[in-house]
Design a protein around this nucleic acid. Structure first.
Lengths: 359, 359
DNA sequence: CTGTTAGCGCTTTCAG
DNA sequence: CTGAAAGCGCTAACAG
């Protein structure tokens, strides 16, 4: 029994270890380990004694050592395109909630849509022995992910528009969302319903949304009216401005509108359109109901407040984390795709059609 | 020499280790270790050989093992109130940039302004042996941080409004910012400059800003005009709406304004005010110049686009990370406070006074 | 019910 | 210029 064992733990920079606890409790480190993990039975009396000593000395197991020994870290890697994007942080919050409960730690890193960065980060996280990988958003391609994932880590994809992945995916049903939006507007009495947004072959979301619009009308035996469809080929870059310009140009040449409601591919587009209409002295929602998509925080600050289709980002993140943790513990990865429904958030930019007869 | 050493590394789930590399290269693991770290000289020839084998076998050192041995992880803990807040993620981006360059890994967690959660997370990160802690935002109190920081980890505070901390702090000079804003407006010809925002004894930022306003005027021998000062005692909760109401009520009872420029404590407040003025048929910036504070992404989407005071969040995060890493490597922590300057972003909601004579 | 001991994969003396 | 071996703090057979 060495003599200076007691003062040792007083040093701030060398925390007390399992060995110290064992010594103080007069048991082996094995017993301490088991008292903590419950892996095997420890006599209640000694267990209590150990626990007390642990508490008194503020002992915390060294997770690094545990990880090395157990080959598992309870760390999850989250890879997303841009930490500054509200969509991803919403999803992140849902993930955080679940992982905190399950006592996992999160390592988050941004790729800025660069697949090479993504590859590097996967390798990096691999060497850190994360227990699983969560991808939020990102490019359509995942070949590099599969290739870089040497250890065959469990992976879950959230809101990543890949065709066929081999990994479980959490997505939103955009087509269904817009079909519902059409029905929603029809219920308010609207029949002349327009659509504005970009459509790009490479962007499945944009196609789903547009198809939802067409399908929604067809379901109700309404034929789309091309003059109320504002389409931009490709992806809108500065969508707020582009949308403003499209509507503004239209109004300058046509002087009036022949629709009573407009579905917008995103909130930004909706806000741009809203602005253009108002600048041209149309009253929203009196003359036209406008519906956005996404429920960005900014859509709460328009005037009138934007009605929009809200996406359950947090819930999606939550589910993603659940599935990931599940597949870490159960080892058998389910490769199913989970589709989340959206909700229509009725604020002030939409209203019943007949109410507009006042003017 | 055992016979099946070669196939072993082919197993996907048991990555190749330093031992494997050593065996393949016919050297000791010590040599491999040093070839990698450069800690001591290794004959160039063997070094190249080792490096090639490492590359061919895609060997990555196990960071967990390294950490256990070196008692340092190259992991940094970042604690912030809310991952969904644009301000924090901006700062985060600056941090990320620096830490990525320096090859540190980030563990990020949100507290939602709960000091207990914060305490837990510090302890958690402690057991994970992070090398340093970065606090973004949060409450005024840091006693629990000091208490929980058993290992005396290097700490840097960003945008946390504490009085005296003992930790290096990265802050913004709010008072100076508003003084500059006053000067900026004066340069545009404005003399009747108003102010709108909350003021709370407990909120140093709000006080600094208001004082900056008063001081800015005084510096130019202008006496503040109380009817142009819209103050709310305490913190504004729904600032956009509250601001809208304050202005709207004022206009309903006064019918006109007696100022030509208005400084707003935040962009949200500015946007609410902007809305109220426009609803009451005032032209911005024709009748009134409006200046926000913070440069939220949303302020780009108003009409007119909001002129605002921009805070160098990314730079602040960057510097914070630099200082933290510095104090990790140098061990001697500088406790200085670093004050960052702001920039006035002139967009469309402010203009020269005389231009408004057109109406 | 408990202890001994061999690792986990790496770094780092110490020794040559 | 290079190796052997101890050790980081913990877990988990194996042994009683």
């Amino acid at each position: 029994m060495d003599k200076d064992s007691k003062n040792k733990s007083k040093n701030k920079n060398s925390p007390v270890t399992i060995k110290d606890i064992a010594r103080m409790a007069g048991v082996s480190i094995t017993t301490v380990s088991h008292a903590l993990s419950g892996e095997r039975y420890v006599k209640e009396e000694t267990r209590q004694k150990i626990l007390k000593i642990i508490k008194d000395n503020n002992y915390k197991p060294n997770i690094i050592a545990r990880s090395l020994s157990k080959k598992t870290t309870r760390i999850l890697g989250v890879i997303l395109p841009d930490i500054n994007n509200y969509i991803y942080t919403k999803i992140l919050k849902g993930i955080e909630e679940e992982t905190a409960r399950e006592d996992y730690i999160l390592i988050i890193s941004s790729t800025y849509f660069d697949d090479n960065v993504e590859t590097n980060q996967i390798e990096r996280l691999n060497t850190l022995f994360v227990d699983g990988l969560l991808f939020i958003g990102g490019t359509k391609d995942i070949k590099h992910i599969i290739k870089a994932n040497v250890r065959d880590l469990p992976v879950v994809l959230v809101r990543r528009p890949v065709e066929d992945s081999g990994y479980p995916k959490i997505l939103v049903d955009n087509k269904k969302a817009i079909i519902e939006a059409v029905n929603f507007l029809l219920d308010l009495g609207h029949e002349k319903i327009g659509y504005i947004g970009g459509v790009d072959d490479q962007d499945k979301i944009s196609i789903d949304k547009y198809n939802g619009y067409i399908k929604g009308l067809e379901n109700n035996k309404i034929r789309p009216d091309s003059k109320n469809i504002f389409l931009k080929k490709g992806i809108m870059q500065d969508s707020h401005k582009e949308s403003y310009d499209m509507i503004n140009n239209y109004l300058k040449t046509n002087n009036k509108i022949d629709m009573t409601a407009l579905i917008c591919k995103t909130d930004y587009i909706a806000l741009g359109a809203l602005d253009a209409f108002q600048r041209n002295n149309l009253v929203i929602p009196g003359d036209l109901s406008i519906l956005g998509f996404g429920n960005l925080d900014i859509s709460e600050h328009s005037n009138p407040k934007l009605s929009t289709i809200s996406i359950p980002f947090e819930q999606m993140g939550n589910t993603a984390a659940k599935i990931l943790i599940e597949s870490i513990t159960n080892k058998k990865v389910k490769k199913e795709t989970i589709l989340f429904d959206t909700t229509i958030l009725q604020r002030k930019s939409t209203q019943k059609l007949r109410m507009s007869f006042k003017s």
